[in-house]
C-alpha cells in the first residue's frame, strides 16, 4: 500500500525525465549539434564511466569540504538563533542586519575571502557557512517564537526554569521548523562548495568544472553537473530521513 503510493508519486516525474533525455538524444543527432556545444546524454554517460577514477578524487574533495562547511554553517545558524532568541535587544539590533546581509551575493564575497584568508580550506568553509547559516537561523528563530502559549504557561506555572523551558518545550516545538531550514541549508551547502572551488582550489568538482571549461569539454562539465545534482539530492534525502525519524510523533498527513 505504502510502496504503491510511493511509486505513484515517483513515476510521473520519472517518465518526464526519460522523455526529456530521449528528446535531447534525438535532437543532438537529428540537428547534428557539435559535441562541444551540446553533447548527447549517451556521450555524457560514456564520458562519466570512462573518466570515473579521476572524478572520484574530485567528488570526495567536494563532499568533504561540503560536509564540514554544512556542519559549521548549521551549528552557527542554530547558535545565532538561540542567542538572538534569548537576548531580545540583540535580536532587534542584529536581525535586520542578518536579513540585509543576504542581499550580498556570496559569489561577490568569495574573491574578498580569498584575498583575506588565502587559498586554503578556511575561506571555502566561510563561504559555505555564509550560505548555510541563514536558512537555519531564520527557520529556528521563527520556530522558537511560535512556541505554544498554553504549553508555555503550563511550564511557567509548574516552575520550570529557563533551561527546562528551552530543552523540554521550545526546542522540541521548533524542531520541525529547524529541520526544514536545515534541509534548505543542505542543498545550499553543495552550491556553496562548488562556488568556493570555482574561485580558487586545486581539487574538487568546482575546480574540475573550471578546468574543463577552458578546454571546451562540455561533456565533462555535464558529468560534473550530474554529480552536483546527485549530491544535492542525496543530502536532501538524508535530512528528510532524519526529519522523519526525529519528528516521528507527527500524524501522517493523510490521516483523517
Amino acid at each position: 500500500m505504502k510502496l504503491r503510493r510511493l511509486w505513484n508519486s515517483i513515476w510521473p516525474p520519472l517518465v518526464a525525465v526519460i522523455l526529456l533525455l530521449a528528446v535531447w538524444q534525438a535532437a543532438t543527432s537529428i540537428f547534428q549539434i557539435e559535441k562541444w556545444i551540446l553533447p548527447s546524454p549517451s556521450d555524457i554517460v560514456r564520458e562519466a564511466t570512462g573518466g570515473a577514477a579521476g572524478l572520484w578524487k574530485h567528488t570526495m574533495a567536494t563532499l568533504r569540504l561540503m560536509l564540514v562547511g554544512f556542519a559549521i554553517g548549521t551549528g552557527t545558524g542554530l547558535l545565532v538563533a538561540f542567542s538572538l532568541h534569548y537576548i531580545p535587544s540583540l535580536k532587534s539590533s542584529l536581525y535586520p542586519l542578518i536579513i540585509l546581509s543576504q542581499n550580498i551575493p556570496t559569489i561577490a564575497l568569495a574573491p574578498l575571502l580569498m584575498i583575506w584568508f588565502g587559498f586554503g580550506i578556511l575561506p571555502k568553509i566561510i563561504v559555505i557557512t555564509l550560505v548555510c547559516f541563514f536558512p537555519v537561523a531564520v527557520a529556528a528563530m521563527d520556530g522558537l517564537t511560535r512556541t505554544d502559549r498554553v504549553m508555555l504557561d503550563y511550564m511557567r506555572m509548574a516552575g520550570a526554569s529557563k533551561g527546562q523551558i528551552f530543552r523540554k518545550l521550545e526546542v522540541p516545538h521548533a524542531l520541525p521548523s529547524i529541520l526544514s531550514g536545515v534541509k534548505i541549508a543542505a542543498t545550499y551547502s553543495v552550491m556553496g562548495a562548488v562556488i568556493a572551488e570555482w574561485i580558487g582550489a586545486d581539487k574538487g568538482i568546482g575546480y574540475y568544472m573550471m578546468l574543463q571549461k577552458s578546454s571546451f569539454r562540455t561533456d565533462k562539465i555535464f558529468v560534473a553537473i550530474t554529480i552536483i545534482v546527485t549530491i544535492s539530492l542525496a543530502m536532501f534525502a538524508l535530512i528528510a530521513l532524519l526529519e522523519k525519524w526525529l519528528v516521528r510523533y507527527k500524524p501522517l498527513k493523510d490521516d483523517k
Binding site: D153, Y154, M157, A158, G159, L169, H173, L175
Partner: peptide
C-alpha cells in the same frame, strides 16, 4: 512565585512529541 501549584489548563496541552 511560580511552581507552587499544579495547573491543568483548559485545553489538554499535552506535548505532541512526548508519549
Amino acid at each position: 512565585q511560580r511552581g507552587l501549584i499544579s495547573y491543568v489548563p483548559q485545553k489538554p496541552a499535552l506535548f505532541p512529541w512526548r508519549n
